[in-house]
Design a protein around this nucleic acid. Structure first.
Lengths: 199, 199
DNA sequence: GGGTTAACCTAACACTGTTCGGTTAATCGG
DNA sequence: CCGATTAACCGAACAGTGTTAGGTTAACCC
């Protein structure tokens, strides 16, 4: 195919298609060839619009992080922490398959740093030392990312035989997958509330 | 090479060499060919001792998880939670490069379930409902895995220019890498203490 | 001592991300 | 309107991945 009259590709189209594949097939389900095929194009053509696959993932990650809202600190620092954490988790759990990639180096992304900066400043304004503010922000990230990895309830089997007998206290763990979403949410809320209350 | 007089390979030797490579070169730095080369062997020979690379990683993960100690619940459930979380984190941070793999489905591993079962039982014995016990255990795992991903302080740049001006409250973030280990540890302890106190 | 098995090998398959060189259409300058 | 440049795509290739099939030979058992 020669140069088409109207371009088939654009960074935006590539990003949104890639994210759709990740949502559907998982992080490992995204390959440049599959992405290209879904766009009606050969793999090599993508590299005219995207520097590298890693960069593509970083751009997608940034666009997800840019939806995080940290504007709740004018009321109360506790309330600000809670709102920030909820917003962060909502952003991550809207595209859970990309979280493992995101969990590597969120601190280095501009979209993440901007929000971290606000959070840090608000905590210092509330009377915490700089070091304490850093640690509190870190702790909040632990809970957000730990819960967003959703490695917990969704990691259980739905087969009762996997638990009964061998794990006396987990005899109803096979019910977890059915309520995974709700339970993960409630566990996150509990952890968040306990953390903020305990500060 | 024909069949050697004394076998060159054993599951144990394969596992420990693989873990050494992961510790040295990261999770992506482990390939079956490199592992084989390090063992003085061709890649195909590994498959006589190991079913698949994923299974190999799972075995390594299980051996790491088996070092987690959950024996502190006879004193007090709060103290038990804290000791369990510390032991868990110590196990993970002794081989940080494998944590991303571990974070996917720790709930499904036998070594993990055994410990989760004890934790769950201890919380129920302490008076928590089954559902509360599940959520508390989940919350503890959030903090443990969130901190073990160490995506926080080690993700910062050591170059002051990356922060000054752009992020008013992060003007000393370039110092973080130098104290990453200590800060990650203290942040974990703070998050853990706040969480347990807030319950 | 012969048959079986275990442990290794070579070669290959189907994939991966990425690059190089080529082809053609759109676009811009005069 | 024509010529040069550039933008957008493609085909083929490279080095790497996990994994399998089939072959070779030494160790082991009866």
């Amino acid at each position: 195919m020669p140069r088409p009259s109207t371009p088939l590709l654009s960074p935006d189209r590539i990003r949104s298609t890639a994210l759709a594949i990740i949502d559907r097939d998982g992080l490992d389900g995204l390959s440049m060839r599959k992405l290209a095929a879904e766009l009606g194009v050969q793999a090599a053509s993508l590299y005219g619009h995207v520097r590298t696959k890693d960069q593509l993932l970083n751009d997608i990650a940034s666009s997800i992080l840019s939806t995080v809202d940290v504007s709740g600190f004018d009321v109360d620092w506790r309330e600000g922490l809670i709102r920030c954490a909820r917003s962060y988790r909502a952003a991550l759990s809207s595209h859970p398959n990309i979280v493992p990639f995101l969990a590597y180096g969120p601190a280095g992304r501009d979209e993440s740093l901007k929000r971290l900066d606000i959070l840090h400043g608000a905590l210092v304004d509330a009377g915490w030392s700089r070091r304490e503010a850093t640690m509190i922000a870190a702790g909040l990230m632990y809970i957000v990312f730990g819960s967003a990895l959703s490695s917990f309830s969704s990691g259980f089997s739905a087969d009762p035989a996997d638990y009964s007998g061998r794990y006396p206290h987990l005899d109803r763990a096979h019910l977890l997958p059915g309520v995974a979403r709700e339970l993960d949410h409630d566990s996150f809320e509990l952890a968040l509330a306990a953390f903020v209350r305990g500060l």
